[in-house]
């Protein structure tokens, strides 16, 4: 079943910035959906429209068959959102924060007590109960933020960049947590990220967006050729060397115009190691002054380039 359906959504801020530019996407019920895009792509704006915070300029958003703006009141009780910045009252204790949330969503008292205990243990928050919330570290605050947003048992949980600024260990713990929420509570999860591997590891469906518009939507498997494609990277000391090499090298191995990036040549590998060996031999035989050659995983920028064929990086 479809949980969220966004059609040709446009959001233009009053200051003139057009953050969403005809975006279309579909989220299925019970899935983990990742919205992947760079800073400024419009991810938070989209979340704000979906969570009924902002009014769309035009286009259509339906959630469980209800219009997100006209029937906002009905949708609000079914969703919750962990914003990019944590939203916890530091003058309340951990439990008071959770109870406050459950009262806002009119969860019956008999239910909220049990749910609170369960969420506290599920998110490993027991040992923080006796300390004031203002003393918590960023990671613990974020966990509490997620836990309290689950008090109302939402059908959709929005997570705006849940792992931004975390080290890799904490991120992996967070990934497990997100999967656990989906598996244990059946919550549909809509998250945003600018980490490629996060979207790849975590989601059932990925939507890649750029400049307020979706570029492609599909399962990690379907997008595999973009997300996990090995890339060959040749570095030069100056831009000029890269340009000089590009022409002749293009004859030797197939290169696209967009593979030349400032002082580097980055291209997708067709034949793995043998391409690496072939290219290295060619570089050495022709006495090309290069700094290094290696196989790397694609960055989000590489994915955009291979999807759109444009070289997005400015030549600085």
């Amino acid at each position: 079943m479809t949980a969220i359906c966004v059609n040709d959504l446009v959001k233009k801020y009053k200051n003139g910035v057009q953050a969403l530019d005809g975006l279309t996407l579909t989220v299925k019920e019970g899935e983990i959906f990742s919205l992947l895009g760079q800073n400024g792509a419009g991810k938070s704006t989209l979340i704000n429209v979906l969570t009924t915070y902002l009014r769309p300029t035009s286009g259509n958003v339906t959630m469980f068959g209800k219009n997100a703006y006209r029937e906002a009141a009905e949708i609000r009780s079914k969703i919750s959102c962990v914003a990019q910045r944590t939203s916890i009252d530091t003058h309340l204790s951990l439990k008071e924060n959770m109870i406050f949330q459950s009262k806002l969503y009119k969860v019956p008292k008999s239910e909220s007590g049990k749910r609170m205990e369960m969420l506290i243990s599920c998110f490993g928050l027991e040992k923080y109960l006796k300390y004031p919330v203002s003393s918590y570290s960023g990671g613990v605050k974020r966990r509490l933020d997620i836990a309290l947003n689950l008090m109302s048992n939402p059908k959709v949980l929005f997570l705006d960049e849940p792992t931004v600024g975390m080290d890799i260990q904490s991120r992996m713990v967070m990934w497990d947590m997100v999967k656990k929420i989906r598996n244990d509570f059946g919550t549909t999860i809509f998250l945003t990220t600018h980490y490629l591997e996060e979207a790849d590891q975590l989601s059932d469906t990925i939507c890649i967006m750029k400049n307020g518009k979706e570029v492609i939507q599909g399962s990690p498997k379907a997008l595999r050729e973009y997300l996990r494609q090995d890339m060959l990277k040749i570095s030069f000391s100056v831009k000029k060397d890269a340009e000089n090499c590009f022409g002749p090298l293009k004859e030797a191995i197939a290169l696209k115009e967009s593979d030349l990036r400032h002082d580097k040549i980055i291209t997708s590998l067709k034949n793995g190691r043998s391409d690496l060996e072939k290219t290295t031999r060619w570089l050495l035989e022709h006495g090309i002054p290069f700094l290094g050659i290696e196989i790397v995983q694609p960055t989000l920028e590489d994915v955009f380039i291979s999807l759109t064929g444009e070289n997005g990086k400015e030549a600085s």
Binding site: S80, A83, I88, T90, H91, L104, K106
Partner: peptide, 16 residues
């Protein structure tokens, strides 16, 4: 204070 470090924005999307 609630905007900087509190539930100001969270309340605005709650069914209230």
């Amino acid at each position: 204070l609630m905007k900087a470090d509190g539930s100001f924005y969270r309340i605005l999307i709650a069914p209230v």
